[in-house]
Structures are given as structure tokens and as C-alpha cells.
């Protein structure tokens, strides 16, 4: 509950300031106060990242890290579900074809699904840093209100992903040594709930901060 409230605080603060800003969209719609010129337009992160954004710096490649990260989190949500499902299954069978080499037995399959989740989460952090470095290089710094709310909200989310990666290192270690089965699979289950929540938070953050 406290986690939901933390992200709701960021989101409502963003909405509060966003409705006040004279963004390019608001300017084009004639919503800005009388006397505003195009030079007074407030540039948000999405203006720098979106193709056709008001900053003029956005294209396919600047939007790509955020888009790839969205897919990475959803795929990682699925791989953690597969890790749990494999751990809890009583009659698990190795898949046929190429996957048989990656998932030869139940213990290795659980470990490899967890490693896949770990790699996707790590990729998320790396791409986020790539994207931040691009934004900072373009002048979108934490020194402005729009930069501050963006970096704090996405940074808090990134911190949750990073914390998840640390926990996942332990899960991978345990999967590789003791192993997970139907009796001790709760560890993956509880971590999975946390990881899905992180994904759920991104479902709100991504469109609000990157696309809108």
C-alpha cells in the first residue's frame, strides 16, 4: 500500500504541475494564457524523446530505449511467472527442440528463467541510463521543475528495479544450489508480486512521462 502511495504522490504532483505548464500541446490547442509565445513553451521529457516532439531532438532512436524497456519489463514479468510455474509443477517435462538445451531439467529451468529475468531487469537499468545521458546532454537537467519531477519519478522506479535485481541475485543463487520446488516456491512467488508491481508502476509512468 505504501508503495502505491509513493508512486501516486509522484504521479499526482506531475499532473498538478503539468496542467499548469504551457506545453506544446496546450499551446497548439490554444489552452495557454493570453500573451504566451511559442518561446515560453515548457519542454517535457517526452518533447525531447518523442519523434516530432517540441524540442526537435526526438526521433526513432531516442524513443527506442523507453519502448524497449517497456517490452523488457513485460517479458521479465512473464519469465518470473514461468520460473514459479516450473518450480511448483509436479510433472514438469523438458521442452522439445532448441529450448531443451536451455531448460534440460526442472532445477536448471527455474534458474535460467530467473537469470533471464535478471538480464532483462539489468537491461532496463542500462537503457534508462543511456536515455538519461541523452536527456542531460540535450539540456533536460534536474535543475528545472519538469526535469526534477521526471528524474525523481523515473529514478524511484529505477531504484525499485535495482532493488529487485539484488533480490534476484539471491534467488538465482538459491535456485542454483538448493533449488526450488513445490514446497519452497513461495520465495519466487512473493518476489514475483513485487516485480509485477514494478511493472504495474511502469504501465503508468511510461505513458505519462515518456509519451504524453
Amino acid at each position: 500500500m505504501s508503495e502505491v502511495m509513493v508512486f501516486a504522490t509522484f504521479f499526482s504532483s506531475y499532473l498538478r504541475v503539468r496542467t499548469e505548464w504551457c506545453t506544446k500541446w496546450a499551446f497548439d490547442e490554444g489552452k495557454c494564457s493570453v500573451g504566451s509565445t511559442e518561446g515560453d513553451i515548457v519542454l517535457t521529457a517526452s518533447d525531447y524523446l518523442r519523434p516530432g516532439g517540441a524540442a526537435g531532438t526526438g526521433d526513432f532512436w531516442t524513443m527506442l530505449p523507453g519502448a524497449v524497456n517497456t517490452f523488457a519489463l513485460i517479458i521479465s514479468s512473464y519469465t518470473i511467472v514461468l520460473a514459479l510455474k516450473t518450480a511448483k509443477s509436479k510433472d514438469w517435462e523438458a521442452p522439445k527442440g532448441v529450448l531443451r538445451h536451455l531448460l534440460p531439467d526442472k532445477k536448471t529451468a527455474v534458474r535460467n528463467y530467473l537469470i533471464a529475468t535478471l538480464l532483462l531487469g539489468s537491461m532496463f537499468i542500462v537503457l534508462k541510463l543511456v536515455e538519461w545521458s541523452h536527456l542531460v546532454a540535450e539540456g533536460f537537467t534536474v535543475g528545472t521543475v519538469q526535469g526534477s519531477i521526471f528524474y525523481v519519478a523515473t529514478g524511484a522506479h529505477g531504484l525499485h528495479v535495482f532493488a529487485g535485481l539484488l533480490i534476484m541475485l539471491y534467488l538465482v543463487f538459491k535456485a542454483d544450489t538448493i533449488g526450488y520446488d513445490e514446497d519452497n516456491g513461495q520465495g519466487i512467488e512473493y518476489f514475483g508480486l513485487y516485480w509485477h508491481f514494478v511493472d504495474l508502476a511502469w504501465v503508468v509512468i511510461f505513458p505519462a512521462f515518456y509519451l504524453y
Binding site: 500500500m1 502505491v4 502511495m5 501516486a8 504522490t9 504521479f11 499526482s12 504532483s13 506531475y14 499532473l15 498538478r16 496542467t19 499548469e20
Partner: peptide
């Protein structure tokens, strides 16, 4: 869903309040 009640209140009271 319980915190959603507070989230909606927060969005209404802060997020969608006028400047």
C-alpha cells in the same frame, strides 16, 4: 484496491486541482 481510494483522492485533490 484499498489504496486506490486514496490515490483517487490524491489525484483529484492535488493532481487535478487548479494552479
Amino acid at each position: 484496491l484499498f489504496p486506490v481510494l486514496f490515490v483517487l483522492l490524491m489525484l483529484w485533490g492535488i493532481g487535478l486541482s487548479n494552479p
